[in-house]
């Protein structure tokens, strides 16, 4: 089912006295239940594209639609709150809180009433036991922190999970575990998972690879389904 529709999106950044085109009228569609990888060299516009999908910024031209409705009309804040879960390379957890509390924060923001037990269950499903969930996040390993970040991204029951280099700070084995989680979310939880990565190893595990060209701001889509 067509979930997210990127239609003729154009985006530029100021570059000294001139303007640099990052995305040149690109169009692409994302569906539920699939794992997408956005790949490109440094400066190709991967993160920019991710910020537009995640509702952290607005396109200069073009329309991004969620379930047929322009996200600008939905409201970027509401779109992020209700429909998107984000995972970052540096985890971006609240450092003075426990894993459980980080998840509860996201649940609280979503406005949906959740019990602590639901938060524990969510963490458990990601592989974080209760004892670790009650620990301050700074006392956890990188892999554990990223799992908590994924659990937080799931807290508001989003349709879309976007991740920006989620395995960038992790070792190989942990990286495989995390990517496995994302695939599981796509297949078992019917989420649309979009991961930005520079790693070909990660990209190869995706259903669809979108390769961004730095020079002309366009996509080449490789569909592995």
């Amino acid at each position: 089912m067509k979930l997210l529709d990127i239609n003729d999106v154009f985006f530029t950044y100021p570059d000294g006295d001139s303007v640099r085109t990052i995305l040149d009228h690109v169009s692409v569609t994302f569906e539920k239940g699939h794992f997408y990888a956005i790949v490109g060299s440094s400066g190709s516009g991967k993160t920019t594209f991710l910020t537009l999908i995640a509702g952290l910024d607005s396109a200069k031209e073009g329309v991004i639609s969620f379930k047929g409705k322009d996200i600008a009309e939905i409201g970027l804040w509401e779109y992020r709150r209700n429909h998107v879960g984000m995972v970052f390379q540096s985890y971006n957890l609240i450092p003075y809180m426990t894993g459980l509390e980080n998840v509860l924060v996201a649940m609280g923001i979503s406005g949906k009433h959740h019990k602590r037990s639901e938060a524990y269950e969510l963490l458990e499903s990601i592989g974080i036991a209760k004892t670790k969930a009650d620990r301050n996040v700074r006392r956890l390993s990188g892999g554990e922190q990223q799992r908590i970040a994924i659990a937080r991204a799931m807290a508001n029951q989003p349709d879309i999970i976007v991740a920006d280099e989620p395995t960038g700070n992790l070792d190989g084995e942990t990286e495989d575990t995390i990517i496995g989680l994302f695939k599981q979310l796509a297949v078992e939880k019917d989420k649309c998972v979009i991961v930005v990565t520079h790693s070909e190893k990660v990209a190869k595990q995706a259903d669809v690879i979108l390769r961004l060209h730095a020079t002309n701001g366009t996509f080449v889509i490789e569909d592995n389904r």
Binding site: A54, L56, W77, E78, Y79, R80, R81, N82, V84, M86, N92, L93, I94, P95, V105, A106, I109, S110, R152, N156
Partner: peptide
């Protein structure tokens, strides 16, 4: 950073 997280979560 913390505030950025809240923003990103749609608070």
């Amino acid at each position: 950073h913390e505030i950025g997280i809240y923003f990103a979560l749609g608070e």
